[in-house]
Amino acid sequence: MAHKSMNLTLKVWRQKNAKTTGQFESYQVKNISEEMSFLEMFDVLNEQLVQENKEPIAFDHDCREGICGMCSMYIDGKPHGPWQANTTCQLHMRAFKDGDTITVEPWRANAFPVLKDLVVDRTSFDRIIQAGGYVSVNTGNAVDGNSLPINKNAADDSFAAAMCIGCGACVAACKNSSAMLFLSAKVSHLALLPQGDPERSTRVMNMVAQMDKEGFGACTNTGACEATCPKEISLSNIARLNQEYLLSSLTASN
């Protein structure tokens, strides 16, 4: 079976390290099969650069099956590119046509500084989790798994929030670089389960405080985050977060 192939122009952000300024550079790639993934097209380009004795483009990627959350390209003005509910690694070249010019940038957010080319530092997300995104239960404390029946709908909703892959596309899509969708997914995941109940109030307060400290912006309520999220994390989680936050503020003892 013959597959269509295409020639493309790529405008890619190049930046040596966190301390230098960057700029766009243009590259040509030829005979790109529509069967390739977007990152495989980058592999082709990088192989070409190695052959030309130039430095390949640094980009984050690992599982290449849409679940680890490591890939992070801002493609033609959209995090993870044109497809809905998709990560960059699952984007395939069928999405483009011969002769296209594709612009590729790193995530842009103060809380995600660029480390090199398309690679950014997302450890701010880890620090938000450290502020309370867990159930405080040491290994060995657990009772039998079935001793705690959980309403199926609550469990399903919790799972839908827990599907967040922590890629940061929501932040990159937001004009305020807000991390509300990421944070609300974790707060919802745990608030919907009885296991998360004892720390419900402190969790939301501490996580929001950490988010502010990291320099993420305020929520704009425009929903760009939900529209771009590869796992379709719902905006209703942000509503739940606000509700949890308000309730905790009103009932906080200190």
Binding site: V137, T139, G140, V143, D156, L193, Q195, G196
Partner: peptide, 9 residues
């Protein structure tokens, strides 16, 4: 048991 206690859905 441990995973359920941690809130694994």
């Amino acid at each position: 048991d441990q995973c359920v206690a941690q809130g694994v859905p």
